[in-house]
Design a protein around this nucleic acid. Structure first.
Lengths: 345, 345
DNA sequence: CTGAAAGCGCTAACAC
DNA sequence: GTGTTAGCGCTTTCAG
């Protein structure tokens, strides 16, 4: 085991000062008018002995860490896992590492994690924020930290960028599709949550209900339940509302639970019940029948998020207005909404 | 914005020395025989002003970071996402944060990431290692870093713990199940990979082939292809081998691609083709017909991994022999392997 | 029991 | 162009 070298060792060996080494290593040689010859000599030597600066010391000194904090609701959810994957890749390309955590939509946990990230001098934050941490985020932003929210929006937080999708129109379009297909008794199964993205989706549903003048059936599922429990709730809801001829599920896992419920009730899709799910999933394509879904632009979301953050990271703080991006989704029409095709012209 | 306080500020305000504050804050008051009265006074004050030690400075000084580096193949793969989720949760409970990265089984990328983790003085490593980084891992371990491998094993790496499942027996049992059901022409669709876990699975297949005296059909898919390409390869393989009556897929995503291929060929499961997949997935339960699979004990794997790492983290280095844990899987029999039931007694 | 002081490794203002 | 040096905030040895 060779002892770790420090910048002092390098300077000593080369019989120059640490300043010079530091400047050269940080690419400020030109600016400081250090001779090309010296620069080369230093670089060569550093390469030779495999010297790597101590990031910790650097961070302590500069206050920068080259780490981005990523907070998602649950990394096991394919939506977040996919986003995380892509964000990580992009961050990596730009010299940033990701430190992540799942919030489980738990305010206290999130608060605690933000504290820890902050202590670690994370350079920027990407977060799908739970309700109730407006204050922490605001104080974070005030202290100069770049913050990008995605998936859901916190209105009270000023100064953070946001990337999301147009949930209201997405669901509205889904409803329109169902109505066009002849469905009339369409339920909306969603989370019992005040999060902006869930509220938007609900609004899309309600707008459609009003516009098409049909009955409203809303089932709100409590958050953070075991899957079996969700399935049970959906099952009993479907059993109770015999008149339903279609259901929209507001998230992918509600959709999956819903399909399990439907299966257990031996309802046929799309004849007994049309099915449409918000957020796509491998499963929906392969399911028999395949399930119509509203696909989110994962790649696009990830790119925008990281681009916005990098932009902030590379510019002086507080320089530009926050951006709010709303991307659109794609309605992927599959067999689960095919039943009554043409029954209405 | 109140200025961040340092330990010096605390000491000054209280008119005591930083040493004392430091000792008290690190729970070494008793050991150092500091008066209870003083301890309380300090604690109270610290609480009051909301002082938080600077982790970076502490890390620089102690060389510990309370961060665990997690390296998985791909965080978007539900297997890894689930493991990551659980590991993160447990780590968190023990005061550790996770910094993660996807290796994509790319040796160079992995090497680079290990370097970065190391620079950051990550306290421990959890890794599903790609081939070719034996040297780096060994040197890491030699330098005293606790390393736990999971999912796949690197034989040349001494001193790392390992948690995996018994792939050979799992596949063997799957084969036995298929043969019991009357299937005779069973293909094994796997990755073109030398990774230990893939090799084990293959061995299980081959042992079964020999023991049951049936034909061998192996299709190896190159790693890191786009999904469509995998589907195409499987499709053409299935088309070519008309005599097949069952297929085992060696990973969940091969299984998903396989199902797509089977769907496009309009083969009926389980009559035309029995299907069994290694590694479970939501999709397999809901698929029509439901897909028999070999489920890995996610919770158990995660718990063992983090327990082993914590054990190492809390004991002096090099103190115990490395542990190699092999957990067993569960064959979840579903409809996709039901076809010829009873056709053989 | 408590305090002074020496670093951990790096950056950058300042001096020459 | 290059060197000196003062910290960044904390831990810990050593001396009282």
């Amino acid at each position: 085991m060779k002892k770790k070298l420090s910048i002092v060792d390098i300077a000593k060996q080369l019989e120059i000062s640490t300043t010079t080494v530091s400047f050269i290593l940080n690419g400020r040689a030109k600016e400081k008018r250090i001779s090309d010859e010296l620069v080369e000599r230093v670089l060569k030597f550093v390469e030779e002995v495999g010297y790597k600066p101590n990031v910790l010391a650097r961070s302590l000194r500069t206050g920068k860490s080259n780490i981005i904090g990523l907070l998602v609701e649950n990394i096991a959810n394919p939506f977040f896992a996919n986003i995380a994957r892509r964000i990580e890749e992009n961050a990596y390309k730009n010299g940033y590492k990701i430190i992540y955590s799942s919030t489980e939509n738990d305010t206290d946990k999130t608060r605690e994690i933000l504290r820890i990230f902050r202590e670690r001098h994370v350079d920027g934050y990407i977060i799908a924020p739970p309700e109730g941490i407006e204050e922490e985020l605001t104080s974070l932003i005030k202290s100069g930290a770049p913050v990008v929210m995605f998936d859901r929006f916190l209105h009270q937080v000023a100064g953070a960028d946001y990337v999301g999708i147009d949930g209201a129109n997405s669901i509205y379009n889904g409803m329109k599709h169902l109505v066009d297909r002849g469905y009339r008794h369409i339920a909306f199964v969603t989370l019992d949550s005040l999060q902006s993205q869930m509220q938007e989706r609900l609004q899309g549903y309600e707008r459609a209900i009003g516009e098409f003048d049909i009955n409203e059936y809303i089932k709100e599922i409590a958050y953070n339940q075991a899957e079996e429990s969700i399935v049970r709730h959906i099952t009993s809801f479907l059993k109770r509302k015999k008149e339903l001829d279609a259901v929209i599920f507001a998230t992918n896992y509600l959709g999956i639970s819903g399909l399990k419920a439907i299966k257990s009730l031996e309802l046929r899709i799309p004849d007994d019940l049309g099915v449409l799910v918000f957020d796509d999933h491998d499963l929906f394509e392969l399911h028999s029948p395949s399930i119509t879904s509203i696909g989110q632009p994962l790649q696009d979301i990830s790119e925008k998020v990281i681009a916005l953050l990098l932009e902030k990271l590379n510019s002086s703080p507080h320089i530009r207005e926050p951006e709010y991006l709303t991307l659109s989704t794609a309605l992927v029409i599959r067999d689960s909404t095919m039943a009554k095709s043409g029954s209405k012209s």
